[in-house]
Each structure stands twice: as structure tokens, then as C-alpha cells.
Design a protein around this nucleic acid. Structure first.
Lengths: 207, 207
DNA sequence: ACGCAATTCAAACGACTGTTTAAATCAATT
DNA sequence: AATTGATTTAAACAGTCGTTTGAATTGCGT
């Protein structure tokens, strides 16, 4: 049916179905139907439904975290104590997430809706992934921001960064919805979102 | 069993079950069991499951919007063109939402997790409610912020306010989780959240 | 071309889903 | 006390759910 393997087709159709209709209506029958395969293929390749969902989340999140980490390391040049430019730090954190959304070919926007829903549902697998991979990188970014904003107390940095993550998460999850309401072309609106969010974060950290 | 009516007990148990286990595991059998009533009582009082969920959302959202609107009108003194203090405007928007969270007696924190989940699931009923009631009030606040920040372009106001709403929504949805991680008493942490979020929003609108 | 392992498939399992039906119970009015 | 309407109940309905089973099929190394 396609050049992709059964396993890949299952992962893709799962992602699309979650984005389109949420977790509530997600069934392995619909998944297998959309992936042009059999019911039992899912249990064969992934064990059970939950482990399939976990792998959908992991597949892209690991990628996002790697990109963020690499961009920060490039600024750092391997030295966590190096003082970097605030805008570049924020760019390294924000841009990969939003670029992933705009990567229509790879279904990035779809994934962000999936992620937003899994986050709200407080998925256990997602929580574990966050603790193991996300939190350490968050801390690295917080450290870098602290060095770039020497006038702000450590505690303030924590709070402001927390709120910036909130603004980013909200924007990612509602990107499709808001872009419809705008009158500019979607591509233009996307780039505007990235720029405005970075400007917003800079302003929030400047006082 | 209780002083509350069957209808109220159903609404409350629904809210609690969504907050505890999400929409995925929500069944009218569990709801009726927890409300100490019969299966068919739900269909009798609410028509069907979806209309029950809709009423759970509406019950509290209408209340939140009313409070916000009243607080803004008090600042305005009924005149939408009156220039108000930025901090007071932000307080009128942010505080009612966070106070609702802290109202443990009325189950406010529970509701905010419900709201976060419904929002992620892109509930149709919630979307309609937003369009009819939320959007107009958002616009009123945006107007008031615009008057309070004469140096910022109208478009910038739009973006920054959008991000502030994101930070607020994120904080509401994850309040339970983050408060566990903090070492200060919960009550203190709550008040700190409100103050920090208002300071954050002020900073984000000051440049 | 054979044999073995990996993969795919149809079918069935038991459990759970939302909703409907009609009978039973309750509360209030005449 | 009888009657009426509102409420609650138990039971059944027709689907869908995730998972398992064992047979059929495929593809690859020999």
C-alpha cells in the first residue's frame, strides 16, 4: 500500500487520529483500518494500545529535546558557565518547538495537538519522559537564562521561565485554531508567532 | 445520603471523576455510582452524557466570566474608554481564575484540571461557550490594556495578551503538580503564583 | 526450491459502553 | 386516603472496546 513499514504506518495513523478526534475516540480498530493493516498487528508490534501511544509521544519528543540541547550546546560551546545572548537562548528553546509545528510534511502540527492532549490527560508515560529528559534540559536553559539576566533574582527567573513555557505550550496547542482566525497567509502567521513569542519572552525577562 | 439534590450530586461526581482520571475513563456508570444514584438518573436529568459534561463546564465558567466582567466594569465605571491602571486590569483578569483554583471548598482546583482537559480535547461545547461568552470579554480586556499601554501597537497588545492567557492557562492546569514540588506551604505558594504571574504580565507589557 | 522465522490475518473472547424501556417508588395536591 | 406527576430503579439492548488465539501468508537465508 505504501513504502512505509506496517509499524510506521501504525504510528502515523495513531498520531493523526489523536490529533483529529482526541484520545476519547481512539480505538485500535480505527488505527489498524487507517494503517491498512489488521487489528492484531498492533498488539504484535507494540504489545498493547498504551505502549503504542507511548511510542508515538517518544518518537517526536526525543527529537525535539535533542535539537534544543544541541542548539544550547552550540551557544555554550560546551561550557555551562558561559554567558550567552538572551535572545539566542530563547530562540534555542522556542524555535525548535514551533518549527516542529510548521513541518507539515513530517506532521509536526498534528503532533503538537497530540502532545497538548496527552499533557492535559497527564499521561504517565509522558510524565516519566518529562522527568527523565525534559526537566534536566529545562534546568540547563534556566541556568543559561540566569547568567544572561544577572539583575534578576534566581527565583524570579524560575517563575518567568515557567510562564514562558506556558505561553509556548498554549501557542503550540492552539496553533491550528488561531491561524484560521487570522487573515494573513499561514506561513507568514507562523513566522510572526515565533518572532512575537521571542519578543514577548525577552520583555518578560527584561524587568 | 446527602443534603444535595441528585442533580447536584451527579454534577459534582462527574467533575471529580474527570479531574481524577480524565475523560477517557469517564463512564456514566462510575458517575452514578459515586453520586449514589442510578444509571438512568443521568439520562433523566441531563438527556445524555455529553449534555452532562457541558453543564459541568458551563456551571463554573459562567461564574468565572461574570466575576471578571464585574471587576473590569468596576474599574471602568461603565466607560470602556476610561484609562485604567494596568496592574488592576491584569488583576481583574488573572485573580478570579486563580482564586477559583484555591477555593478548595467549592472544588475549584478540581474544575481547573477539568477545564484544562476539556480545552485540550477541544470540546465542542466548550468552544461554543468560548465564542459566545469568552471572546467578547477577552476583547474588552484587550481594549482596556491597550488604553493602559498607549506606547504599544494594537497588534503587539493582541499577541502579548494571547501569551499571557497561555501562561495563565498553563499555570491553572498544572497548579496541583507544581505545588507538590515546591517546599513552601500550599497557601503561600498559591499567593506567590498570583503575584508572580501579575508581575510577569506587567513586565511583558512594559516594553 | 526448501524450510524456518517473521509477519499478517480472520475470528472469537469477555468486558464495558451509552441509551432505552417499563415498572416501582416517592412527594405533594385534591 | 386517593390520585397525579416527578423521580428513581432494575433490566435489557445493541454496540464497541482491547486482547488473545491459531491458522495462513510472506520474505529471507540456505
Amino acid at each position: 500500500m505504501s513504502t512505509l513499514s506496517t509499524k510506521e504506518r501504525i504510528l502515523n495513523s495513531t498520531e493523526k487520529l489523536i490529533a483529529e478526534h482526541g484520545f476519547a475516540e481512539l480505538s485500535i480498530r480505527k488505527i489498524s483500518q487507517r494503517a491498512h493493516t489488521n487489528l492484531a498487528a498492533i498488539n504484535y508490534h507494540f504489545g498493547n494500545k498504551q505502549q503504542l501511544i507511548d511510542q508515538v509521544l517518544e518518537r517526536r519528543l526525543n527529537n525535539l529535546f535533542d535539537i534544543r540541547k544541541n542548539m544550547l550546546d552550540e551557544l555554550n560551546q560546551g561550557d555551562p558557565k558561559k554567558v550567552c545572548n538572551l535572545e539566542q537562548i530563547l530562540h534555542a528553546f522556542i524555535a525548535p518547538a514551533l518549527f516542529m509545528i510548521n513541518d507539515e510534511h513530517q506532521g509536526g502540527r498534528i503532533f503538537m495537538q497530540v502532545l497538548a492532549r496527552a499533557y492535559a490527560e497527564q499521561s504517565e508515560a509522558l510524565h516519566d519522559l518529562m522527568k527523565d529528559r525534559y526537566t534536566p534540559i529545562i534546568k540547563e536553559f534556566a541556568e543559561a537564562i540566569g547568567l544572561a539576566c544577572p539583575d534578576l533574582p534566581r527565583e524570579t527567573i524560575f517563575w518567568r521561565f515557567h510562564f514562558i513555557i506556558g505561553a509556548l505550550t498554549y501557542t503550540m496547542g492552539h496553533f491550528g485554531a488561531t491561524s484560521v482566525a487570522r487573515q494573513m497567509p499561514e506561513e507568514e502567521y507562523f513566522e510572526k508567532s515565533v518572532a512575537e513569542l521571542i519578543e514577548f519572552a525577552k520583555a518578560a525577562l527584561s524587568v
